[in-house]
């Protein structure tokens, strides 16, 4: 009996030693050197794997950074400046801090502004619907409201409002670019979040001339150039019958908002009061109302969000944009 045990232990032990020796040499021969910094950089990244940086995932992004040895041209939109600084520390480099961005929906063709002229009956996909017609409202450039952007979003940051059938971006947005790619009409754009989260943009991408554009939608940009003429900073460019505000140049003076005859230029997160005192005489009453509505609409989304987060004391503006993504990342991790 003892013999059996001894033989077994002996033969297996010998086998183990032989295998270990073979494995050691094989491992030596096939050793692949991998820069340990790749792991470190990956560690620093939010591991959302959203692809917003333009790489296949966080690992691919980390590999690209380590390979190039510089941080120029690399930006993690999800983590923003903080994460890039961390990555910079790992790499021993100074991170170029990119301005945080947010997705902006440049169409306000709500069911009210651009009433349906036909009824779509088919699969719920903007990409599919866009191949058979221009849209229920008749505008060839407008939002179809079928939610390809919502589908593409990994961060629960864009939702089609069932009342208006226009998507709304919440502060969850990390500017990963997914919705920009998903939108078949190229309506969504990434813009700088701006000072105090204030943004001004033309909420229309229509390239038709004024008359047909206005026929389909009450709030279309008709290419009248009024905003272009009034802008003191040269931030507005006119192209293809429509205005475009360059967010780098815009100083948020709001002169264009006031002159726009179709209310196509939107301002976000500006206090209502200040506007009243400043431009009381210049804008007619009707316009005032819509601006009010616009801002409350914005507040509304934030309010619902607040109840979701159960932080009732917090005012919507105090909530910074950076906070939510990092929360989100914690959840994901």
């Amino acid at each position: 009996m003892n013999e059996v045990i001894i033989y077994t232990v002996g033969s297996l032990g010998a086998l183990a030693i032989v295998a270990a020796v073979i494995l050691y040499f094989v491992a030596q021969k096939f050793k692949v050197f991998e820069d340990p910094r790749i792991d470190d950089v990956e560690e620093a990244l939010p591991s959302a794997n959203c692809g917003g940086c333009g790489y296949a995932g966080c690992r691919a992004f980390a590999e690209a950074i380590v390979k190039s040895g510089t941080l120029e041209g690399f930006n993690c939109p999800v983590g923003g400046a903080d994460i890039m600084t961390d990555v910079g520390k790992v790499m021993g480099l100074e991170a170029a801090i990119a301005e945080p961005q947010i997705a902006v929906v440049r169409c306000n063709g709500t069911v009210k502004n651009s009433p349906a002229k036909v009824k779509y009956d088919g699969i719920s996909s903007c990409a599919a619907a866009a191949t058979i017609f221009s849209g229920e409202g008749g505008c060839s450039f407008g939002c179809l409201g079928l939610g390809d952007c919502e589908e593409s979003c990994d961060f629960d940051a864009i939702h089609v409002n069932p009342k208006t059938m226009i998507p709304e971006v919440t502060s969850n947005c990390v500017a990963c670019n997914a919705c920009v790619i998903a939108c078949p009409k190229d309506i969504i754009e990434l813009r700088n979040v701006g000072k105090k989260e204030r943004r001004i943009f033309v909420s229309c991408v229509n390239e038709e001339k004024g008359a047909p554009a206005k026929k389909n939608c009450d709030v279309a940009c008709i290419g009248c150039s009024k905003c272009f003429n009034v802008c003191p900073f040269d931030a507005i460019e006119m192209k293809n019958n429509r205005a475009y505000i360059d967010y780098e140049k815009c100083k948020l003076c709001r002169k264009c908002v006031v002159v726009c005859p179709t209310e196509a230029i939107h301002e976000i997160n500006f206090p209502l009061k200040k506007l009243k005192t400043e431009v009381k005489k210049e804008i007619p009453k009707k316009e005032m109302e819509t601006i009010k509505v616009d801002i409350t609409a914005n507040l509304e989304t934030k309010t619902t969000e607040r109840t979701k987060d159960e932080k009732p004391g917090e005012s919507p503006k105090e909530k910074t944009i950076k906070e939510t993504p990092s929360d989100n990342n914690d959840d994901k991790a």
Binding site: I123, S125, A127, T131
Partner: peptide
């Protein structure tokens, strides 16, 4: 099922 709608979408892509 609107099979062709989906197929057309895939075909376009």
């Amino acid at each position: 099922i609107p099979l062709l709608d989906y197929i057309r979408y895939g075909k376009n892509k």
